[in-house]
Design a protein around this nucleic acid. Sequence first.
DNA 1: TAGTGCCGTTTTGTATACATATATTGATGT
DNA 2: ACATCAATATATGTATACAAAACGGCACTA
Lengths: 237, 237
Amino acid sequence: MADIGAHSGGRRVKNGHESLATSPGVTLAESLRQKLEGAIAAGHLEPGSRLDEQEIAQRFGVSRTPVREAFRLMAANNLVELRGRQGATVRSIKAQALIEMFQVMAELEGLCARLAARRVSQAWGAEIGEIHQRLVAAGETGDIDVFYDINQEFHEAIYEASRNSFLADQTRKLRNQVAAYRRRVTRMPNRIADTVREHEAIMQAILAHDPERAHSAMRDHVNLLGDNLLDFLAAFE
Amino acid sequence: MADIGAHSGGRRVKNGHESLATSPGVTLAESLRQKLEGAIAAGHLEPGSRLDEQEIAQRFGVSRTPVREAFRLMAANNLVELRGRQGATVRSIKAQALIEMFQVMAELEGLCARLAARRVSQAWGAEIGEIHQRLVAAGETGDIDVFYDINQEFHEAIYEASRNSFLADQTRKLRNQVAAYRRRVTRMPNRIADTVREHEAIMQAILAHDPERAHSAMRDHVNLLGDNLLDFLAAFE
DNA sequence: TAGTGCCGTTTTGTATACATATATTGATGT
DNA sequence: ACATCAATATATGTATACAAAACGGCACTA
């Protein structure tokens, strides 16, 4: 079975349990949720793999109760699938569902961009410019994991700039749902160069306060990524 | 405290417990979720009111465990708020958040309409026409609860017609989140007549296979409803 | 040999008991 | 009288025990 947190610097405490950020005031269920969601997004837990209550409970040195509650919380974010009396599995997304999700995501991210174009300030321009420069630098270095993270920062900045926190939340959640699949795409041939170019178009439209152009630029960007992702998956099936 | 299910024909079984659909193969937590979500949507549970684990457990004659799990599941749909060690409350949506939610909902329902316009068949035209006729009839009768339900049917038909089940799901969830507030608006002066007129515009655009017009007609419809809702709330604050 | 039904094992669902954090209340002091 | 602090009470979080359903293997039969 997948080794949760093995790559995320997860060191085990002396009694053989994975360490759980044991800050006071935070429940075990919530800590578990964060850990497990991180493991899913990072791809350490394969989509479709079963989540064994007892195993996870033992691994983290807690009882089944907080583990079960964490599963329910994760179902909130559509990251696990609960089938009554048949356990929990990491949600596996079929190609058809991915198409549907990207269609929605394109629209939501497009809305973020449109609102950002209407509401954005001068200071924000400097901020996004700085992020973009770092993205370009990472692209030239070829450090894919860094590129992935900065890319995320770029989109996050636009979520915030939309000044609609509900929209930002929804979009973020959707992004997290496809994260496990998405990460693989970054490694595709022209993806990095394309991303940089597309981001520039989005940035220009927003800074020019052109909502419609910002909307369509962002929508195209997300759709292209979706197409790439489907191409990638098709190569495996 | 709010009387769960008092208006939904909720009869109590002999031992004083609310009846839970006790079909085999369905867990108590899931049954509870359905019951409670229904009570929230119907307005029998006030937004902001606290959900007491013990009380609900006693009311339905179960232990706290399935009640807690039901709370976690409901948090999935953003219908309850869980604050660590401070219990669960029915999510209360502030005016600002409602504005944000309607902005997103307008976009999502607009996307449903756009896709429907592209994909809809002849047979579907008959179906939606039949629903609309019933809506008009209910409007003339003035039976507001029936009108509300048929209105929901109309929108649901468009969700399905989009042929994007993920989008349909997201939109439905969002609709459920604001349901408790929305229901009150139906009683506003011109809302019924306006709704009928707006639905006609949407229907025509979809049946004419005009995606852009369908999109904007639906978006306007949702936005107008949102405006009405805000007017309504403003009258109370 | 393939299929079917039975039985034991495993895992999930629920109840209950216990630990701990938060809220409330009352006493005390200024 | 009001504020503050402490002790108690209440509710949530977690652990464990028990019940029941699903899974798997095996024997039996056609």
